[in-house]
């Protein structure tokens, strides 16, 4: 599905060049569930953002569904990721001013999907995650676990082929975390490709493959 070859990313602080990613090679096949692990500052989130096209890299090649991302223009890239990638954040990042329903609906608005179709899609999603009763509540009225459910529903609404999750259970208690991970492995069984960043061995064990990062380098 995607392939990273010799990816470098660095920032210059003072006179020094600090490497965030060093010569990362990674290939991900359709249907995999990959966990990225490593200590703080090892570049996990950076790698995830690079894969999600939210962040640039300085050197290397990145092919996503046969498209060479490193040569694409910004506009192409964002079209690509809008269509194929869903994001789940540690801090949920729901829009506080919108209700559950509206939060889930928002990505569809940016894809110019018709109102009737949007309604059907959002209703499906609410149904599937069992949050129909909460659709008119605002994020601040929900527990963390519920907010993350909404976050996942929002990531999935546009039917992406790749789901990226940056410590999706980081702000949750263990029971809530477990539920989310169960959901992820269920999604994976249905064919969704998932890449998650996590600190927890237990969460990593839900995946099909684990990648260890150390100082920006894949450490296997």
């Amino acid at each position: 599905m995607l392939e990273l070859k010799g990816i470098f990313k660095w920032v210059n602080t003072g006179g020094n060049r600090v490497f965030l990613l060093k010569d990362v090679d990674l290939s991900v096949k359709e249907g995999e569930f990959i966990s990225i692990m490593g200590p703080s500052g090892s570049g996990k989130s950076t790698l995830l953002n690079v894969i999600g096209m939210l962040d640039d890299f300085n050197e290397g090649e990145y092919t996503f569904l046969h498209e060479p991302v490193h040569t694409l223009k910004e506009k192409h890239r964002s079209a690509l990721y809008k269509q194929y990638i869903g994001f789940v954040f540690q801090a949920y990042h729901l829009i506080d001013e919108l209700t559950v329903y509206e939060n889930i609906e928002t990505p569809l608005l940016y894809q110019d999907i018709k109102s009737s179709e949007r309604k059907a899609l959002v209703a499906d999603m609410l149904d599937r995650f069992n949050i129909v009763g909460k659709k008119d509540l605002f994020p601040t009225q929900l527990s963390g676990g519920q907010q993350q459910l909404v976050g996942i529903a929002r990531a999935l609404i546009a039917k992406p082929r790749l789901l990226l999750a940056d410590e999706p259970t980081g702000n949750l208690n263990s029971k809530q975390g477990e539920e989310i991970m169960e959901l992820f492995s269920q999604l994976n069984k249905e064919g969704m490709t998932i890449i998650q960043v996590t600190h927890s061995e237990k969460n990593a064990s839900y995946g099909t493959r684990t990648i260890h990062l150390l100082d920006g380098r894949i450490d296997n």
Binding site: S78, K82, F87, F89, H93, I95, D96, P107, Y110, A158
Partner: peptide, 16 residues
């Protein structure tokens, strides 16, 4: 800012 970030991350073009 956070709202902008979220909207962008879920696909909002700058124009919108």
């Amino acid at each position: 800012a956070r709202e902008v970030g979220v909207r962008k991350a879920i696909g909002a073009p700058r124009k919108s």
